[in-house]
Simulated scan of single mutants.
Amino acid sequence: MESKLKEEAVSQYSSAFSDKMQSQAFQQKEKLNGQDILGLTPLKQINLFVIKELFFHWKSEVEQLKSPYFNYQAEEVKSALASFMDVVSQNILINKHHLRPLLEKATKDTLYLVLAPYDYFYLLLTHANKQSWTVSELEEILKYVRINRTLLERLLDKCRHETLHIISTERITELFNQVFEQVQEPPEDTEPYIQQLSQEVPLQTETLFSNTTTSYSSPQVNEPYITQEEPPKEEKKEEGPRTLNDYLNKSDRSTLADMHQQRKIESLSSHISVNQKFMFVRELFNNDPEAFRQILEEIDSQNTYAEAVGLIRRDFAPQYQWKMDSEEVMEFMELLSKRF
């Protein structure tokens, strides 16, 4: 199955983690300053996201300043407000009640950034209240991102070459999907960050993922949502996890052929979603996106399902030490079954 984070599970963990961090932070203090927040949790990214939320709250308040008597859009006024913000940022003072929602949101955002970076940036860029972006706004966000920065850095490079100063959200997401298809660097290893979180509140990452299959595509392409057909009710029986050998079994292959007879795909690479790409590169191909791309091309060049599976079993599975009963292998094999 494809790894898609469950919002409810992420929220539950973020709440528990925030409760503990907040309880520790306010044991001997009634309010926290900026330095306290930068050391609030063992994961620096969470602390920076709390600061980011404070900064953007401030920007929102300033943008709402209107007066029939004063021109807040004058350059000297803007400059003065920016200087004021520099002073204010050195004098943060926040109590437990006001910190709690910021900390919980920062924790949720960090979990998405670590475990599903494409999702994090995509949701950020397509925020319902945001109709357009500027390069300076994206640069401001990048200041607070320490994990999986490459996607945003590459997006910024593309945006700097755009002719318009203000870029529509639709155009931004189009550029972002182009970046994702072109980026060669693998996502960062999740384990160090999970360990840091687990030292405070135990975290098993599998509890954060759902069992649904989804795919993201650029705004111009609408791909069908495909689910695996359920077996007839009269055949109910308990079965263990499927393995690669199950897919090689003739009767299983026949069943899959019946299921997907009308849904053949022309190539694996064009039907692997962005989330799947991250997952396969990380879990099946040792964080090597170039090897992943070349292997897909080699598999696509095979003439039959049997040839493709033989290639996988003979070359790639041993080379990358696949666990044949893992969910990632099963999902990869399901995609392969739709190819031939």
Rank of each mutant, 00 (worst) to 15 (best):
Q276F: 03
E200I: 12
L244P: 05
L93Y: 05
Q73W: 01
V274F: 03
D300W: 01
T169K: 11
S79M: 11
S269E: 14
I51L: 13
E200F: 08
D119Q: 13
D258Q: 08
Q182A: 12
S269T: 07
D109E: 15
Q319K: 15
I92L: 14
N303Q: 04
R313G: 01
A74L: 14
E185H: 07
E61S: 12
K29R: 15
L32A: 04
K236G: 04
E76M: 14
I51K: 02
L123F: 13
S67N: 13
Y72S: 00
T41G: 13
M259D: 05
A306S: 15
V50M: 13
T126H: 11
E53M: 02
R282F: 09
K264R: 15
A291F: 02
L43F: 08
P202I: 00
R313A: 09
S254T: 08
L152D: 07
M85H: 07
K44L: 07
L256Y: 07
L81T: 15
Q262R: 10
H165M: 07
F56N: 03
V201Y: 14
L93W: 04
F285E: 07
M85E: 10
E283D: 13
V114A: 09
F209T: 05
Y122T: 02
A82D: 15
S3Q: 13
R171H: 10
Y72G: 01
T227P: 01
Q27W: 06
I94F: 10
Q321A: 13
T150C: 06
F278K: 11
F180H: 06
E229K: 09
K236T: 03
L5R: 04
N148P: 09
L311E: 03
A257V: 14
I226L: 15
K264W: 06
K52S: 07
P219C: 00
Q302K: 12
R253S: 04
D86W: 01
L175G: 00
L43G: 09
D119N: 05
Q90M: 13
Q294W: 01
K323T: 05
K96M: 03
L296N: 05
Q195I: 15
N71L: 09
Q182Y: 00
I272G: 02
D189R: 09
S15G: 04
L32G: 00
P231Q: 02
I141H: 10
S267G: 08
K236A: 10
F26H: 03
N286V: 02
F280V: 02
Y122I: 11
E235Q: 11
M259L: 06
E185S: 05
V281Q: 10
E30S: 11
E30C: 07
M1T: 13
P192W: 03
D157Q: 12
S215G: 10
E206M: 08
L113T: 00
S3V: 11
L125D: 06
F26G: 10
M1S: 13
T213E: 14
I172R: 04
I166M: 01
K52L: 05
K158I: 07
Q131I: 00
G240W: 04
L256T: 01
E174H: 00
D252Y: 02
H98I: 03
L197K: 00
E53K: 12
E8L: 09
E76T: 15
P241Q: 05
F49Q: 15
W58D: 04
